[in-house]
Design a protein around this nucleic acid. Sequence first.
DNA 1: TTCCATTGTTACCTAAAGGTTAGTAAACTG
DNA 2: CAGTTTACTAACCTTTAGGTAACAATGGAA
Lengths: 141, 141
Amino acid sequence: MTDKEIISASQAICEALSEEQDGLKRDVLNHVGNTWSLFVIHSLGVDGRMRFSRLQERVTGVSQKMLTKSLRELERDGLISRTSYMEVPPRVEYELTELGRGLLVQIIPLWTWIIARSDTFREARNKYDQIKKGKTSEGLI
Amino acid sequence: MTDKEIISASQAICEALSEEQDGLKRDVLNHVGNTWSLFVIHSLGVDGRMRFSRLQERVTGVSQKMLTKSLRELERDGLISRTSYMEVPPRVEYELTELGRGLLVQIIPLWTWIIARSDTFREARNKYDQIKKGKTSEGLI
DNA sequence: TTCCATTGTTACCTAAAGGTTAGTAAACTG
DNA sequence: CAGTTTACTAACCTTTAGGTAACAATGGAA
């Protein structure tokens, strides 16, 4: 299957989407693009079930508020599960669901593809930035 | 290769990333999660090279400002190319690069995976929302 | 009794995203 | 000469994202 065939097949699929499906797709893709969500999914995938405070240590730089928010969103979309134990002090454990593990497995090829091309990306950026820089300094003369 | 093996392999890769590579990866993933960028990549993939105004018609709902911004970012990362013809009125054409086409081809399996599971996602959401609703109305009594 | 540990929530504030509108350049048309 | 067309850029404003910090709940430990 060539690239062209893959792309035109995807077009057919996307055109047939209901508005609700399209929104759903966008939201899930949003998790993929969001640093915190992605970090949470990856951490839970690598280290398995974890409690809140441990996750906060692991996901460097996340605030309590944003971690809570990310966890709620991921839970709502069925990507992680939350288990609360009726203890004092409270203990809550988070874990990837089957669906969440599936998503992670889907994302990883994309990651590795990007990482494998990081030189290409870097070069493109350098080139672009240099041309832009040249233009602005010309503009000042 | 099992899911576990895939995940632990990805962990090894991600741990070895330099800070710059990690930032690059995050930026590219950001394009994947961004509605406008994604729309642009998809449109250019499906319909080929296009000029600005045509793209704006195609990407429903995008403002001129955001379309410009998205195009600049994608160009900077080497995913699309910009060709400006010295005519009046101006004509500028955008096209996916090889790299951009490659990214699109990588994203499509992720899309189809999500779309194929939209029922699962919907159910998860309904369940979550119902439980939450129950809790808040309890709280009001 | 007072403090601690843990997982939150809420209020408040700043920074960033993004929309709307107006302006620009420059040749062609009437 | 005024109007049109295209691809922007700049200014202004509103909405959202996200950070910080304070507070809540509670049984056990000191």
